[in-house]
Design a protein around this nucleic acid. Structure first.
Lengths: 314, 314
DNA sequence: AGTTCCTATAGGTAATAGCTATATTGGTTT
DNA sequence: AAACCAATATAGCTATTACCTATAGGAACT
């Protein structure tokens, strides 16, 4: 049995007439008759009584009509829901993002996304880069904002932007400079993430290249907590500039540019290769780029700034 | 889209693997792949993410799976219900029957039928023959027990038996005979059905052929009521022997055979030509015949019998 | 009886679901 | 890396079948 049989059957049941039903189905009457005969043979019973000029549904026919209608309705509804899904009128999008990126990119992104796609259920998980990668591989995540390069060949990563890492110090710290050479980091007390975090690894690599030995006095996982510890004088830290920039206002902190070389890392949008990306997913990526363009277009603000400084905008 | 696509899709979704799904479906893997591709094209979306060695349902795929399962369940359930219908495990049978036949044939028939087919809803309408014919023509009735010949070419009628008509008189009526010539009916006061009833017409025809003028003193539609009127002395009546036979016990009535000629009429099982007869319907006919054979096999009892006579069995 | 209005059947054709063979592509192993 | 596995996709052919036209057969209505 095929859906064709159901469609033909319902057309005949509705038209009460093979010839008219064949017209509406745009097939010839004999084709229709044969298909109905085949259906009746498969079911082992007559569905219509051919009573000369009129036809009537048998008991089996009446029973079958209800079920055929429901079956076809299910199929049509599925097609409709999928259209809505692909039109991003519904669905779910699960995104993993780095805690730092989360703080400056996600708020405006979520706001714009929900406005454009109110029917889509968006879920954002703030996770370390490695977990994002694992989540993408395990299909727990649809998209991930993580550090590049991504260590899995199975993931496609689209570079979004470079984050510059800056040194963060208490506002009244004795360091006089607005800029600091990498090699001058040596001996300074640092508050960093634990060793398995990408940001920590990145910092250590940079320091190693600059032949500097770091002195980690405190490890914390949350960048928020790290900044607080620094403000309270536990030491200094190194975090992405865009992240820190938003946290300076009303804090007791200041940013100090590192150079020679300038430490940077790349953030990209990653997703599992070959995975179907629906409209909501694609648009999420587009929004990422446009919002980042906005953020980066803001004036490259002076790196030294009083902790009491107000808005970043001139 | 056809049910094939749904079946194939569900097989892949269950097996999580095209090759294994193809095996269980007994088709080749490429055939399956092509069908899934066609389905995805028709829906305009991917249903599976081909992730190298494994596959996973997309959001659309998850959504589609639910609907596809429901659609197929509907179709299977319809087939199952129809099998039960044709196995007479369920269904409805609407039968029209003559009031006289109703009284002696239907009670044992219903009893046996309900025992064999407890799931079938049996509905018996006691109606004049003309209404039975009309009911069959209008598809209100599945079967009819009516007088032969049936006046509609569109109805098939299977003769079941002949009913002999007998004169019924009060037990102490002055008529001395156990038998009466048709022509001797002349002048006797009769209680009969109205003129549009077949039984009345039949009596009148018989009388006309016997060149006898009837004197109808009372018209009633129900044979039950007629017998009561006769018992109360309103007159005599002419009714089927099998019907009267069952009513004599504990009544004040006696039967008088009519002869020269013996008035008879035929009763048959009628149904609309070309109408599908399911098992319940066919078995109803078979039961009719076997029960009638039983009734007719009872000893041809003497036609003259005291109203106070007990059981018919010796 | 003739005519009309249906559905069923017959026979041929075109569309297509299926097959085998093979390419291609991730993932694993050496 | 290179070679190898395991899985799906593609190509080309074949068998099936849904469809068509023409026509037969039957009931209903002049």
């Amino acid at each position: 049995m095929e859906l064709r049989h159901l469609r033909y059957f319902l057309a005949v049941a509705t038209a009460q007439n093979f010839t008219k039903a064949a017209d509406t189905l745009h097939v010839s009457q004999p084709s229709l008759s044969v298909q109905i005969r085949d259906l009746e043979e498969e079911l082992g019973t007559r569905l219509f009584d051919r009573l000369g000029r009129t036809i009537a549904l048998t008991q089996a026919g009446i029973l079958f009509r209800d079920h055929a209608e429901r079956a076809l309705r299910e199929v049509e509804q599925a097609a409709q829901l999928i259209r809505e899904l692909d039109g991003a009128q519904r669905g779910r999008l699960v995104v993993g993002t780095l805690a730092t990126v989360n703080s400056y990119l996600i708020p405006p992104l979520v706001s714009q996304f929900k406005q454009r796609f109110p029917g889509v259920h968006l879920q954002v998980h703030s996770q370390p880069s490695a977990e994002i990668v694992a989540g993408l591989m395990a299909n727990r995540l649809d998209l991930g904002l993580c550090l590049l390069p991504v260590p899995e060949a199975q993931l496609t990563a689209i570079p979004l932007f470079d984050e510059q890492l800056v040194l963060v110090a208490p506002a009244r710290h004795r360091l006089p400079q607005s800029r600091l050479r990498m090699k001058d980091l040596g001996g300074l007390p640092l508050v960093l993430m634990p060793a398995d975090y990408c940001l920590r690894k990145m910092v250590e690599e940079e320091c190693a290249q600059a032949r500097v030995t770091t002195k980690v006095v405190l490890e914390m996982t949350s960048p928020e907590g790290i900044l607080q510890a620094v403000a309270e004088g536990a030491g200094l830290t190194i975090l992405p500039e865009l992240y820190v920039r938003q946290r300076l206002a009303h804090s007791n902190l200041r940013m100090i540019d590192l150079y020679d070389p300038v430490p940077r890392h790349s953030v990209g949008l990653a997703y599992r290769m070959n995975r179907y990306q629906n409209l909501a997913s694609k648009e999420f990526g587009t929004l990422c780029r446009s919002i980042m363009a906005n953020l980066l277009a803001q004036p490259a603000s002076p790196r030294f700034r009083q902790a009491t400084a107000g808005s970043r905008r001139p």
